[in-house]
Design a protein around this nucleic acid. Structure first.
Lengths: 206, 206, 206, 206
DNA sequence: GATGAATGAGGCTTCATTCAT
DNA sequence: TATGAATGAAGCCTCATTCAT
């Protein structure tokens, strides 16, 4: 039915609006200090209405995190897969992740705040979920490394160690950029990241 | 007076006991979910007693963070300065930081939780303080890099970029170790970190 | 809208119910000993509900005092203005104030307790407000006296001194009545007050 | 023994010092906001020491009130009794009470605050005591009036009504003076009080 | 006798969630 | 379906009193 489809579309629009505003508020105040009333207010709905979209404040928070994060993982994964050349894949990965951070400053600030784990004891659910999602993503990166090793362009070394190192460098640069919030684009850091990760910092003796 | 000195020693003992237990509880539950009663209970003091040592729950939290973190910074800095050889300094830095993490698992988990910033609006104080302390530490690392460049053992490159990359790799490995908490010592990762950081992951063509 | 008006009416009903019960509790126990839970209980609302009507215990207390007191001032002022004859005005004033005391025994007991000033340091607000309201009222009484002087029915004397004296006598009788709480109506004291105030207690020599 | 007498003298000195400081603090902050620590601090003794002089905060408060108030009652009574002339007795009474207020501003402010009754429910003791003391004092004043009536210098009227009126006027002037705290001496009000009380405010027709 | 650190009951207030309209 | 007033559990903190030194 036409009507049904419209309904669903509207439902999703509202849901997304709530998610966006929630991300903004959570980023600004942190999970505990942000109140459901704040979010209801910001998104223009009544408190009760929020509860028709999300079971609880915690579930809403979980949705904010996992859905947006999932987008980033998906985007990056797609971009990397679309790049045929192995070494270039790494550059694409860095670029894609930095772009996401630049386009989602507020959302990413949540991770700087990082209170995504100080939830009620019972709710290890989100914690587990995020750790698992991250693990899945890292093993994708690990796969990229493994292919590089097999192809002989990367050193013989545990690929997971490579993946973790790369993620660490990326996170470090992104965090610094989010905290400092200077005018310069995060993108200027793509080349340094790739250079250090691939070539290291030691000067080669001749 | 003799008496006074004993008093002060006891005072510090109690204070430390509270700090330790608080670190444990905060690590386990996060700032907001941990209650003052929890901490009082764990440390064996009455609630009111905590308030003779720390003005508020927030100040206690701040003390937990800044004091222990300061120790880590100091320890690492000392170890690095004691090492004369430039390239070895980097290895010592990694080793020292990993050792601290291994010896302070609970405390370091706080950073995995990372809710050290979602405090009451007014209390940007702790936030600023920690960011500054971290910045000071990073610029120490930056200094090490700069010397390496001048000595011709490290590439010509912004030393701050090197420092951030190294910190990122260290954090990444430490976080994974804290989350996974497998039996293996974090120390087995020292060599990989140094190898990747110094030599990169790309296989050198001959 | 009809609905809105009903809502507002209900809101005011609830608010008044809370104010009344709060007056009762505050009068019985004093500001500090009365607990918010007491008042919630007495008024049949949940604790949280009180906070939808009044920001804080202190504001509730302030509302109890200023709103009822305002009513008394207004009532008395109106009654006095409606009386044309100057000397009679004084009798009307005494009658009106005594009537209010009789009809609001519990509320007035608050002033016998009189802890309306021992609030948190910052809250000089209520203190100032009440002193000012009282001052305004006294200057109204002063105005009555001034007219009496101009009309030649009262002695040549600072009218403010007269007003203060009259208020003092009234308060004294009202307080005694509130403390003793005998069966006799406070109204039997109207004539003595007027007699003493107008004629004094000295026997005239001939 | 000499030693014992000195001890007792010292004890009383300390006790008085505490009472004085307590009066100051209670006057400034009110019973509930004043802490035992405040008083200990102000009087230069340790908290524990206060409890060797007074059983509890409440008893200390009671002592502050009843002892000083008793002094005022006694002083005034003495002064009035020393005055032979009946009508002059009234003037002496007003003068004496005003003098006490002027010399004990801080103490008297307690009554302006007036939270001497919002104590724990059980402690009706102080309340009763003060009401009784006041009643005793008023009946002394009543006695003066009665004598005046018998001697034919005061009108035929319930002497208690006269006494209450006089006390009311005195309190009213004293309160206003305490609140306003202008530079002018309270003594300038003696004559007006006496004039109004004895002669009333109505202009005598000839 | 003097001290003051330790105690812990109890107060005010917040805010996620429900449910009658 | 949308609303938002009502709810009440639970948290942080204060402060009178005790008691070991």
């Amino acid at each position: 039915m036409e009507k049904e489809r419209r309904k669903e579309r509207e439902f999703n629009l509202r849901r997304t609006e709530i998610l966006d505003q929630a991300a903004r508020i959570f980023a600004a105040k942190g999970f505990h200090s942000a109140t459901v009333a704040d979010i209801a207010n910001a998104s223009g709905f009544a408190i009760g209405t929020l509860y028709q979209f999300f079971e609880s404040k915690e579930k809403l928070y979980a949705a904010v995190l996992t859905e947006k994060l999932g987008m980033m993982y998906a985007e990056t994964q797609k971009a990397v897969e679309d790049e045929p050349e192995l070494l270039k894949k790494i550059e694409v990965l860095v670029t894609s992740q930095f772009r996401f951070v630049e386009n989602n400053t507020e959302f990413c600030s949540i991770f700087i705040r990082g209170d995504y784990l100080s939830l009620s004891e019972g709710s290890t659910e989100l914690r587990e979920r995020m750790i698992k999602d991250y693990a899945v993503y890292v093993s994708f990166v690990e796969g990229v490394m493994r292919k590089g090793i097999r192809a002989g362009v990367l050193k013989e070394m545990e690929p997971i160690l490579m993946a973790d190192a790369l993620m660490g460098i990326i996170n470090s640069y992104a965090s610094k950029w989010l905290i400092a919030a200077e005018g310069q684009s995060l993108m200027v850091n793509v080349q340094p990241v790739v250079d250090i990760f691939l070539g290291g910092v030691r000067k080669n003796a001749h």
